[in-house]
Amino acid sequence: MIRFMLGRLALAIPTLFIVTLAVFAMVRAIPGDPASAMLGDLATPEMVARLKASMGIDKPLPVQYVIWLGDVVSGDFGRSIGNDEPVGPLIWERFKVSASIVLLAVALASMVAVPAGMIAAWRQGTATDLGLIGVATLLLSIPSFWLGLMILLVFGLGLGWFPILGSQALSGSWREWAAAIAMPVLTLFLVEMGSIVRMSRAATIDVLRQEYITHARAKGLSESAVMWRHAFRNAFAPTWTLIGLILGALLGGIAVVETVFTIPGLGRLLVEGIYTRDYPVVQGCILMIAFVYVVVNLIVDMAYPFFDPKVAR
């Protein structure tokens, strides 16, 4: 078990290394001098010269990379071109907003969708199954930003239950925060249900075909005992991996939902950084999201043997 975990950890290190290399290369790929690009059009020659010195531009590229990586590891992501704020704390503040939305939505979606998928599989071919799989496929086909706009139209503008601007998600009180993130959480909850129900159903069907299930049934166990005691753990394993992938991928795609509800999250920060060519911010956001994606998948893989002990051997 411990060997499996260490092995998986060792696999993540080259990936993280290449991720940092790619993000470093990104800014160097911009045509022209990277220090001027990083500082934008309004920079004075002195500012460019200062940044050049701190980036080690006159030194060879591998040395520049090491200098940059050292800064990043110690939490120094540079300063934003837009407002000269340090990028590190800015990203952390916005990340907390996005992460709370994504975590809540995925946790709620899993709690509903995993049992729903298992029930569909258990009742395979019946009206219950067709109804559940139909709703799931429909949810999978609705873009999150459009569903968000519809929810905004109904619950924000029509019924007036929630504030239509989500800016309180960053600085408001506990209640204001909850009201601000309610609609984005509902949106992502519905969108992610689709894929989780489908995966949970497919995995459960696979498990129910296996001999040990027939055996459990043959020895006279009740259907619910077969389902929850014998099928659940094995059927949940592949769904667990999918949930991890969703958690990471959502953070990359959350910009659209944050745009709909004007939530000041990490996705919005990234997109605004791209508009204004604020490269330190863009670089920091991409690095943060990719890092979280790798780490979340690492944690998910490490917990995998808990559901499927065969893997650890």
């Binding site: 990471g248 795609g253 791209i274 991409i286």
Partner: peptide, 13 residues
């Protein structure tokens, strides 16, 4: 290791 949309955003940046 990059979510698909993020990779696209990075390239477009």
């Amino acid at each position: 290791a990059f979510p698909g949309l993020l990779l696209a955003l990075g390239i477009m940046a």
